[in-house]
Design a protein around this nucleic acid. Structure first.
Lengths: 201, 201
DNA sequence: GTCTATAAAAGGATAGAC
DNA sequence: GTCTATCCTTTTATAGAC
């Protein structure tokens, strides 16, 4: 019952933020399975037992990182709502933002298939809440763009949604950059272009 | 030095095939990291030590499965060369085949990021040989399609190649099927369509 | 809450009998 | 070559002192 608990709280919060930042980076770099808790604590510079005071499991650790990513995405969506863009322009901006995040090593790659993490995430309230917010917000834009004839209205909105984010899960971006022949901006442009207009001419 | 070694050889070959088939399925289902050798031997119904007489490591096991997948893909390419199709039609057929394989649970998903498996694969002669064959064959079709104006000629052929196969790495297909609202054929159609013509109308 | 030290379990790989 | 039994490393998670 200290008279000034705020400072201590801030220190703890800062440490948690540092942990989540490390997790986010490692998750983007090697994925959930390959990331070890030992790596995380080594990166942050704390003892493992300390980490487990903040997060009770590796899954919860990853969930915290995912929550933060979703928060960043929701912030971006809010920001875009103030821009003078139509629905299609906003969706393209979201796609661009996503690929840029991935290029910056900020986009965690989750196991696409069944795993302990998947089930942990679906029962994580904070995660699911944000995920639904994101789905609702983008879903509205998609339907709007389809209504305006800017997106193929015969495609189910959910397919459009998943396709938008699919590139964040596949290795194309990383492989293209590994080649070293093209700039990051060029690669992102191509990805946005092929996402919305396909490979055809 | 038995007089009739053929029968025994066939039995061994059949066992190896059973192992590779299991690996292929598990690799498609959960990925390399999440798949355990214990699961494989349980699935095949043999002892772990027996498996290690055939394959010296988990990586080699996965490589064998990948070689088989590439062989199937090369067979498909050979088959398509006999079809009365133009370059674009052949590429679309390859895409369709790939997505169908994934839907059938036959397309192993490899870790996109660095891992022990990646390095093992790049030093696997059988794997690299087939990979280059595949790349060459498809690369020729891509350049041809671009020359005919059927594909955007401003895109690097390698980007086109990776994009074609990217959907085999992302979760869209699986998630769409999990929804249960659409037939497999419908989903594959949509994926091929969005790959070549994008989300726009 | 943070640390050191350690438990507990999983998973890759092998020894040795048959 | 196949089996049982085992080794050994890695990794998740916790006990207990400060």
């Amino acid at each position: 019952m200290s008279a000034r608990p705020r400072f201590r709280e801030q220190v703890l919060q800062a440490r948690e933020d540092a942990i989540v930042a490390s997790v986010n980076r490692l998750l983007a770099e090697k994925g959930f399975e390959a990331m070890t808790v030992d790596e995380v604590v080594a990166d942050v510079g704390i003892a493992k037992a300390s980490l487990y005071k903040h997060f009770t499991s590796k899954e919860e650790l990853a969930a915290a990182a995912m929550v933060k990513v979703l928060d960043r995405a929701l912030d971006e969506i809010t920001r875009l709502q103030a821009e003078p863009l139509d629905a299609l322009g906003r969706l393209q901006a979201v796609a661009r933002w996503t690929y840029a995040q991935q290029l910056a090593g900020q986009m965690p790659s989750l196991p696409a298939q069944n795993s302990t993490l998947r089930t942990a995430l679906t029962t994580d309230k904070a995660y699911m809440e944000r995920l639904m917010q994101l789905t609702d917000g983008l879903g509205a834009w998609i339907v709007e763009a389809q209504g305006q004839g800017a997106l193929d209205a015969t495609l189910p909105p959910e397919l459009v949604l998943y396709t938008l984010f699919a590139r964040a899960c596949d290795p194309v971006l990383g492989v293209m950059r590994a080649g070293g022949a093209y700039s990051d901006a060029q690669i992102v442009d191509w990805l946005v272009r092929t996402c919305f207009r396909g490979l055809g001419s």
